[in-house]
Computed example of a mutant assay.
Amino acid sequence: MRRILAALSVGAVVATGALITAAPAQASTADCVGYLHDVGYTVGYEAASACEIAEFQLGGAVLCNALLQNLGVAERHAVNACTLGAS
């Protein structure tokens, strides 16, 4: 009986852990957008899209950086935002 309870307990912990660790994956785009907002930029659709590119495309931080700079974001701010977006 103890072995059955122990196995069920471990299974519950593993299942709960999988649910808990899956949640933070969406934070990167929000971190990028939030950073831009915090340093004084108005973040519209194009800037938010650049942040999404950083998160979801392989090598997307480089493209994100170029897109944000084309929108008038200072280089250091673009680099920081896109690094956050890619993490």
Rank of each mutant, 00 (worst) to 15 (best):
R2K: 12
R2E: 02
R2M: 07
I4L: 12
I4G: 00
L5W: 12
A6N: 03
A7Q: 02
S9Y: 09
V10H: 03
V10Q: 02
G11A: 12
G11V: 09
V13E: 00
A15W: 06
A15M: 10
T16F: 15
I20K: 11
T21G: 03
T21E: 04
A25H: 13
A27G: 08
A27H: 03
A27D: 04
S28A: 15
D31A: 15
D31Q: 15
V33Y: 03
V33K: 10
V33H: 04
G34V: 12
Y35Q: 00
Y35K: 04
Y35G: 00
L36A: 04
L36C: 06
D38Q: 14
V39I: 13
G40R: 12
G40N: 08
Y41D: 02
T42V: 14
G44M: 10
Y45V: 12
Y45I: 10
E46Q: 14
E46G: 07
A47F: 05
A47H: 02
S49Q: 11
S49I: 08
A50G: 06
I53Y: 04
F56H: 06
L58E: 01
G59D: 00
G60P: 07
A61N: 04
A61F: 02
V62F: 10
V62M: 05
N65F: 09
L67S: 00
L68F: 09
Q69T: 14
N70F: 11
L71W: 07
G72Y: 02
G72V: 11
V73W: 01
A74L: 09
A74T: 08
A74D: 05
R76I: 05
H77I: 03
A78W: 10
A78N: 04
N80P: 01
C82M: 06
A86T: 11
